[in-house]
C-alpha cells in the first residue's frame, strides 16, 4: 500500500509517499522531513514535547496519524522565527526568562504557548497560564521561567495586535 500525502509544513507544501499508514505526524516530521525540532518524549500524549500546530491549533503530534491529516497546515518550532532569523516573541521571551534548562521540552513548550496565546483563554492570569500549559512537562522544573515567559510574550503579542 503506498499512500500519497500532502502537508503544508511551515508554509511550504511537502509531498510524501507513505508505504505504511502507521506513521504518526511526529514520525513524518522527524524521520521523513528531517524536522527534528519536535521531540519524541513519551510518544503517548503525556509529556507534550511533540506539540505542533495543526491548522493553527496545538495538538500532540505523537497521537495523530499523518495520513489522517492529509491537506493540513502544520507549524513546527522550525517555522516560528521570521525568514531573516528574527525570533518569534515567544522564543525571545523563553530566552529572556530562562524558560528552560536542558532544552528537550522547549520546542513543545514554545509551540504550546503559541497555541495557548492564540486560544485567548488565559490572558496574563498566572493560574490560567499554568493550567493551560499543564500538557507540557518539564523535568528540569523550569516552570517558573516558563510562566514568566508566557505571560510576557502574551502581553507583547496582544500589544502588537492592538497596534
Amino acid at each position: 500500500m503506498s499512500i500519497p500525502l500532502r502537508l503544508t509544513v511551515n508554509g511550504e507544501p511537502r509531498d510524501l509517499i507513505l508505504e505504511d499508514p502507521r506513521v504518526t505526524l511526529l514520525d513524518a516530521l522527524r524521520e521523513r522531513l528531517h524536522l527534528t525540532g519536535s521531540k519524541k518524549g513519551c510518544d503517548r500524549g503525556q509529556c507534550g514535547a511533540c506539540t505542533v500546530l495543526v491548522d493553527g491549533r496545538r495538538i500532540n503530534a505523537c497521537l495523530a496519524l499523518a495520513v489522517s491529516l492529509d491537506g493540513a497546515e502544520i507549524t513546527t518550532i522550525e517555522g516560528l522565527a521570521a525568514r531573516d532569523g528574527g525570533l518569534h516573541p515567544v522564543q525571545a521571551a523563553f530566552i529572556a526568562h530562562d524558560g528552560f534548562q536542558c532544552g528537550f521540552c522547549t520546542p513543545g513548550q514554545i509551540m504550546s504557548a503559541v497555541g495557548l496565546i492564540r486560544e485567548g483563554q488565559a490572558g496574563d492570569d498566572p493560574e490560567r497560564i499554568r493550567e493551560g500549559m499543564s500538557g507540557n512537562l518539564c523535568r528540569c522544573g523550569a516552570y517558573a521561567g516558563i510562566l514568566e515567559a508566557v505571560r510576557d510574550a502574551s502581553s507583547d503579542m496582544q500589544r502588537e495586535e492592538a497596534a
Partner: peptide, 9 residues
C-alpha cells in the same frame, strides 16, 4: 480532562 492539546484533537 486531559490537556489543551488533547482536547483540541
Amino acid at each position: 480532562g486531559a490537556s489543551a492539546q488533547l482536547r483540541n484533537a
